[in-house]
């Protein structure tokens, strides 16, 4: 791991030199003050996603407290603050924090009830866990210098495949073999049914992939784009444009953070509905 970091540093140095050379006159002035922070126009939009140990530079074992641990813990802390500390008064006339918590509760509760029906409410805590975790992880990732845990496919794949396996097992437990009717369109003409079944089956197995890649991809792309624009801010001539662009994209990313959490949660509800009512 240590050697890996070292190579990167040298790469960064050479790259900085290249950039300065490429931009010629424009970048000469920049190069002077950029030289002492290791390279002028440095593009490392993905460095923000590197998993590092919190203490020291050792290897990342499965138990090592890393920046992932820190930002996951902060997400947990936010959930606790909003839903436990915020509602500790149990006030009939709620405080501001309590009413925000109630808003989240009501929103998710209604979403589960609308999509899955009354019998889906049994699984409401699971959907709520996913929704608030992704929401807080997304928003915490938007803080400057933070680490976006949901940008990692390792994280979103656990969430996505967790939903996939959970829903599939639940479907078979609740419906037995008749869960397979999910793939057998009884309304379709008989000769089309096998073809549709194959398509349905493929789409069913693609679900967890799209479910998890959608989230990680959105967050990664947004953060990387912001970093690219941030790197351009090093050039005096384009820095106003670059800073405007960062501001605009930041606004967009705030939107994306909320929407992706919502999309993840509502897709979870849709998949859950298939497990509860497999017949089309």
């Amino acid at each position: 791991m240590a050697s890996h970091t070292a190579t990167e540093t040298t790469e960064a140095a050479t790259h900085g030199a290249e950039a300065t050379a490429a931009h010629g006159g424009d970048a000469v002035a920049q190069g002077a003050d950029a030289a002492h922070d290791a390279g002028g126009l440095v593009f490392h939009p993905l460095d923000q996603f590197i998993v590092k140990p919190l203490f020291g530079d050792g290897a990342v074992h499965w138990y090592t407290p890393t920046n992932v641990t820190l930002w996951l813990a902060l997400a947990v802390l936010c959930v606790v603050l909003l839903f436990v500390v915020g509602s500790r008064g149990r006030a009939t006339i709620p405080s501001r924090v309590q009413s925000v918590g109630e808003l989240f509760y009501g929103f998710t509760h209604k979403m589960v009830e609308d999509v899955c029906g009354k019998e889906g409410l049994k699984y409401f805590p699971y959907v709520m866990t996913l929704f608030v975790f992704i929401l807080f992880a997304n928003f915490l990732g938007l803080l400057p210098m933070s680490f976006a845990t949901t940008s990692h496919i390792a994280v979103t794949a656990v969430l996505g495949f967790g939903v996939f396996f959970g829903v599939t097992i639940l479907g078979f437990v609740l419906n037995g073999p008749s869960f397979l009717k999910l793939f057998w369109m009884s309304e379709a003409p008989l000769f089309l049914r096998p073809i549709i079944a194959v398509i349905e089956l493929i789409s069913y197995f693609v679900r967890p992939v799209s479910h998890s890649v959608r989230l990680a991809g959105n967050i990664t792309a947004g953060h990387a784009v912001m970093k690219v624009f941030a790197a351009f801010a090093g050039l005096a001539i384009v820095s106003p444009v670059s800073i405007l662009a960062i501001t605009a994209i930041y606004g967009l990313e705030v939107l994306v953070a909320g929407i992706q959490a919502y999309v993840f949660a509502i897709l979870t509800c849709v998949y859950l509905k298939d497990a509860l009512h497999p017949a089309h």
Binding site: V51, T66, V68, V132, F133, V155
Partner: peptide, 14 residues
């Protein structure tokens, strides 16, 4: 590492 800490966080939140 990520999966381990994520599972802990999810269980705690749940």
């Amino acid at each position: 590492n990520q999966i381990f800490w994520l599972l802990i966080a999810l269980v705690v939140i749940y």
